[in-house]
């Protein structure tokens, strides 16, 4: 158990009928990346759903999830301060790029427009506020999704194969951007991936989930 960071203490997820699915214990310190690898169907994404608090009622969760000393188990997803990025970047299609980024800002943030502008500028998308997200390239969407999540000021970041849909060339740059930003924000990061190159780029420990 650690005071700071994300801690999964004897986490065990089983089907509602009692059949076990996956078990994991891990401590992830701030700035650390833990990579979770394994074939599809072993429950990697289910672990992430347990941490975000969106586990289907078809599963049972045992064990304790703590973040910076707070026990998350009983908290609703909105109170957990756990950020997540998916392989599909899932920008809201009914909002502009600027509105998407602003979606992450806490309510009553002063100078919203300026914050959004600065955030877009940081990822090289100056002046993209009014654009339709559908008109962005895959790499641009990935960056917008990252900024949207970071502006919500999460205490931890979960990554659900966020690089797998990107072109090989883009993938390196996006990995570097994500990990750099996560370290700068002192976030513990849990990465779920198929790709050993992701884990290598993350530079942290790798846990292989058995089948």
């Amino acid at each position: 158990m650690i005071e700071d960071g994300l801690s999964l203490d004897q986490l065990s997820i089983s089907h509602a009928d009692g059949k076990g699915l996956v078990q994991l214990s891990a401590d992830i310190a701030p700035r650390e990346v833990l990579s979770l690898m394994g074939p599809s169907g072993v429950g990697k994404s289910t672990i992430l759903a347990a941490i975000t608090g969106t586990l289907s009622p078809a599963f049972r969760l045992e064990g304790r999830i703590t973040l910076n000393g707070r026990v998350l188990n009983a908290l609703p997803p909105q109170k957990r301060r756990v950020g997540i990025l998916f392989q599909d970047h899932l920008l809201f299609p009914h909002l502009s790029v600027g509105q998407n980024v602003g979606f992450g800002l806490p309510p009553r943030t002063p100078d919203r427009a300026a914050r959004i502008q600065a955030a877009l500028s940081e990822i090289g998308l100056d002046g993209f506020e009014a654009r339709d997200p559908e008109t962005l390239s895959g790499g641009q969407r990935a960056r917008v999704a990252l900024m949207r999540m970071l502006l919500a000021e999460p205490d931890a970041l979960l990554l659900d194969e966020p690089f797998s849909r990107l072109d090989v060339g883009l993938r390196d740059r996006m990995r570097e951007l994500v990990f750099t930003r996560a370290r700068a924000a002192r976030l513990p990061v849990l990465l779920v991936t198929h790709d050993i190159a992701d884990a290598e780029a993350a530079g942290g420990r790798v846990v292989n989930l058995p089948e």
Binding site: A49, T52, G53, T54, P76, P77, Q78, K79, R80, R81, V82, G83, I84, F86, D88, L90, F92, F103, G104, P106, R148, M149, A152, P154
Partner: peptide, 13 residues
């Protein structure tokens, strides 16, 4: 896609 809701929740919605 229910992951939209997950993202919304992750941002405190």
């Amino acid at each position: 896609d229910r992951r939209y809701a997950t993202i919304g929740a992750a941002m405190g919605l």
